[in-house]
Nucleic acid binder design. Structure first.
Length: 645
RNA sequence: GCCGGCUUAGCACAGUGGUAGUGCACCUGAUUUGUAAUCAGGGGGUCGCAGGUUCAAAUCCUGCAGCCGGCACCA
């Protein structure tokens, strides 16, 4: 047999016979290396340590503590969980069990639902299986053997999976003791390598193959790490995220509430509405500077209008309708675009009027499925910072790039600098001719390429085939928050269809009627969602310009009341949002309360301050106290409270 | 919409068949206080809604709604 050359991470190389396994190579170097190795990488690709090596490769032996081993730990853990479930509930069918961010899941077909107490039982059984430390062994089976075996076991989902594997591919079976599963691998050397740092998290329903027309399976989510320290750190991180939950902070900070008579709808309280309006003012200023005009269009229009626009056909099941006493059917607008086209159509437009940028802080109404609702992040009535830009075809690139620049600069004002952009192309359900879709998708791809180039590759992109809107493809801006979670906010959509459908045109330089192209775009996306994201991103600790209540003046004794009122008046006159706390309480009590309410600035005033015309400043999150002259404090805070941009 | 869980005072929670509780918040009084809880007293709940079982239901059963975790859908 011929030799193959293996190159080790230290640069040294060595020849071994083709067909030698990774385990044999490791053992020949040292038995202890073999013992601590759970898998290998060949040219960077993970594979089983027992795999024969048949070509030259850079080889790396992976110990279980190597970051590369983490996905193996999780994947092995999914197998162990599946064995545990099948041993506890014989007759349960296994389906798929992939690795996901921070963990894994496995989907089961089981007639009785899992109950909460089952989680502990499964975990216990898993620990037993890990302790048994059975080696993972791989076999390659014929398609027929696999189908026959799984069919005999009653594993109908596995049979379906076998059928879905392309003809040329090997069918691999991984065994851990007597239990086995169809799996593409790789796995570690034995179940013991999983260790103890795993935990099951939740039961959930999930459709077979992610398809809501197919049977629903029971999914178990788990997390697994190389060490218990890492597991604990991860759990702590989840707890941190929970503390930031906008639903919890919204209640604690008295920003808004929900109630069951209005599912998916927000009752904004004064403080929350102040925050909301601060965001709108900010965006209004940004858009004015960028040459937009603001309009307002009707919330309800007759159904036939939405039939004409294509919404009734393509979006109808998400629309609220109402029948008036005169029996005409009206629809609440789910989007602002058709209304903006009507405004565009008033007065003949020339190519000289383009680009025409029509913006609206319009509240749209969408009947979302009940299971989709989630605090302010997914509601049925929300305000978009929406705009429609009417342009000629050759203005697409320039306008999309302007939008992109504005989008990025706005996100930066909120501290979001880690952005990624998804391109979503034509969905199955759509309006318009394919050649127009070709043009629209090409245009957005070009924009995306240019944006990536300009950012020197800092902005990452992804393609989402079939995820576009029914009237056009879209770019979707996803931003990463302070604790690494991703949120989709802005969107830019190129639309060759809607203007034509609704009879909008302009006169070009040759006096001919032309159909404008429309760009639909939103930057915050939904103001409600963006507010929720900001609450979680800042954990309620808003920068001064956003904080609904910016300053509290807390008195130390009653004697200081007149001075406290004077301080409040001065701050209000400087444009700050201020309250006084003159209650008969100790200063420590007041500081605690306003700190819990996340007020950015607490000014304590007592007799010393009244005499010296000073304030004692305490900033949220700091124990430190700074005594400032009143006039200086007012000027400094007024400056700090200015909105960016 | 689908699967599972949950729903008790403003908030967080205890209470599994026999007169509804705790802490915080709230109200009243005393205390005038220098940076994360001063002391004492008091009020507050058709136990999500509607049915049913029972001598008796927060507790058991059925239906509905909302919420939570996922799936599907999506800004």
């Amino acid at each position: 047999m011929s030799d193959v050359t293996l190159t080790f991470p230290d640069g040294k190389s060595r020849n071994v016979k083709s067909g030698t396994t990774g385990a044999e190579v490791a053992k020949s170097i040292s038995p202890s290396l073999l013992k601590r190795t759970v898998a290998m990488q060949l040219d960077g690709v993970l594979s089983d340590l027992a795999d024969p090596i048949t070509k030259d490769a850079a080889i790396n032996f992976v110990p279980r503590t190597d970051p590369a081993a983490l996905e193996l730990i999780r994947h092995d853990c999914a197998h162990v969980m599946a064995e545990a479930v099948q041993s506890l509930w014989p007759g349960t069918q296994v389906t798929i069990g992939p690795v996901i961010d921070n963990g894994f899941y496995y989907d089961f077909a089981k007639s009785e639902p899992f109950v909460p107490e089952d989680m502990g039982k499964i975990e216990k059984k898993m620990h037993e299986i890990v302790a048994r430390n059975a080696p993972f062994t791989k076999e390659v089976w014929s398609r027929d053997k696999a189908k026959e075996t799984f069919a005999k076991m009653g594993e109908t989902f596995k049979v379906e999976l076998v059928d879905a594997i392309p003809p040329g591919e090997d069918l691999k079976i991984y065994k851990q003791g007597t239990w086995f599963d169809l799996c593409r691998g790789p796995h570690m050397t034995s179940t013991g390598a999983i260790g103890k740092a795993f935990k099951l998290q939740r039961f959930a329903g999930a459709y077979w193959r992610g398809d809501s027309t197919k049977p629903q399976l029971q999914r178990i989510y788990g997390t697994a790490w190389a060490t218990e320290d890492e597991l604990n750190a991860y759990i702590k991180q989840l707890e941190e995220a929970e503390k930031r939950d906008h639903r919890k902070l919204g209640r604690e900070m008295d920003l808004f509430h929900f109630q069951e008579e209005a599912p998916g709808s927000i009752f904004w309280h004064p403080k929350g509405w102040t925050l909301f309006q601060t965001l709108i003012s900010y965006m209004r200023r940004q858009q004015e500077q960028a040459g937009y005009v603001e309009v307002n269009s009707p919330d309800m229009m007759e159904k036939h209008f939405w039939e004409l626009s294509g919404h009734w056909e393509n979006y109808g099941e998400n629309m609220f309708t109402t029948t008036l006493p005169d029996e005409r059917v009206f629809c609440c607008k789910p989007m602002n675009c058709p209304g903006h086209v009507q405004i565009y159509k008033h007065g003949l437009k020339s190519y000289r009027d383009l680009p025409l940028k029509i913006a609206e802080f319009g509240k749209v109404h969408r009947y979302e499925p009940s299971g989709a609702l989630h605090g302010m992040l997914r509601v049925r009535h929300f305000t978009q910072d929406d705009a429609h830009i009417f342009i000629t075809e050759h203005q697409i690139m320039e306008e999309c790039l302007k939008i992109n620049d504005l989008m990025l600069s706005i996100y930066k004002d909120f501290g979001f600098e880690d952005i990624f952009i998804k391109l979503s192309t034509r969905p199955e359900k759509r309006v318009g001719a394919d050649h127009l879709w070709d043009k629209a998708e090409k245009a957005l791809q070009d924009v995306l390429d240019e944006v990536t180039k300009r950012s020197n590759g800092r902005i990452k992109t992804a393609l989402q085939p079939g995820e576009g809107a029914f009237y056009g493809p879209k770019l979707e801006y996803v931003l990463k928050d302070a604790i690494g979670r991703e949120w989709q906010c802005g969107t830019t959509q190129v639309d060759f269809n809607l203007a034509g459908r609704l009879g909008a045109f302009y006169i070009d330089e040759h006096s001919e009627k032309k159909t404008p192209v429309m760009i639909h775009r939103a930057m915050f996306g939904s103001l409600e969602r963006f507010t929720g994201i900001l609450i979680e991103n800042y954990a309620g600790h808003f920068p001064l310009w956003l904080a609904p209540l910016q300053v509290v003046i807390a008195t130390i004794t009653r004697d200081a009341d007149p001075y406290a009122n004077e301080v409040a008046e001065k701050l209000k006159a400087a444009g700050l949002r201020v309250e006084t706390d003159l209650r008969n309480e100790k200063i420590g009590y007041k500081v605690r309360e306003h700190s819990l309410a996340k007020v950015p600035l607490i000014l304590a005033v007592g007799n010393r301050d009244a005499e010296g015309r000073t304030v004692s400043v305490r900033r949220l999150g700091s124990q430190e106290q700074t005594v400032m002259k009143l006039d200086e404090a007012v000027a400094a805070f007024a400056d700090e409270a200015k909105a960016p941009g």
